[in-house]
């Protein structure tokens, strides 16, 4: 019987248990290349950061770009920084995507998915709203038109803090 328990524990431990980056925990720091030099998350403390992970093959991601552009232009002056982390293995695909969907937000490149693994994304796209202290305030998986209002309200709320 005891053996069975051990066996059960062994079985459970074999399945990789992934814990996604959680709300109210500090956002893990990273440094990634962008089109204008590198970006480091910790250097953005004091700003509200909307960290978005996307790829060219993901259609909700395509939908989120016009919204992110609007948010950046509306709240950029109040201290909002949007970082769109691209997870395409081939940069050409991202470049092609950005030619079709132009953006004003900062695009960072993580072709090996290192930061994506660090944040344990559960789906595409996933976004993290990080407050001025560098704490994750909200995580969001997917992007639907109906999500926009709640996300914007949260951004406004964090900008006031």
């Amino acid at each position: 019987m005891k053996l069975l328990t051990y066996f059960g524990i062994l079985l459970a431990s074999l399945g990789t248990v992934s814990v996604p980056a959680a709300v109210n925990e500090p956002a893990a720091n990273f440094t990634l290349p962008t089109d204008q030099g590198t970006i480091e998350l910790n250097k953005l403390q004091g700003q509200v950061v909307y960290l978005d992970f996307w790829a060219s093959w993901c259609s909700p991601c395509r939908k989120s770009f016009p919204w992110m552009n609007a948010m950046q232009s509306r709240y950029g002056k109040d201290g909002l920084t949007i970082i769109a982390v691209n997870l395409d293995k081939e940069k050409d695909l991202a470049v092609k995507f950005l030619a079709e969907v132009p953006t004003q937000v900062t695009v960072a490149y993580d072709p090996e998915g290192k930061v994506a693994a660090q944040y344990q994304l559960m789906g595409m796209p996933t976004s993290f709203l990080i407050d001025r202290q560098g704490t994750i305030h909200r995580t969001h998986i997917g992007f639907r038109d109906t999500d926009k209002q709640a996300l914007e309200a949260d951004i406004q709320h964090l900008l006031k803090q």
């Binding site: 399945g15 992970f53 790829a55 395409d88 789906g123 996933t126």
Partner: peptide
């Protein structure tokens, strides 16, 4: 079998 396909690898 335990190697989970990550969401960002699904394009592959």
């Amino acid at each position: 079998a335990f190697e989970k396909v990550q969401p960002w690898d699904r394009d592959l």
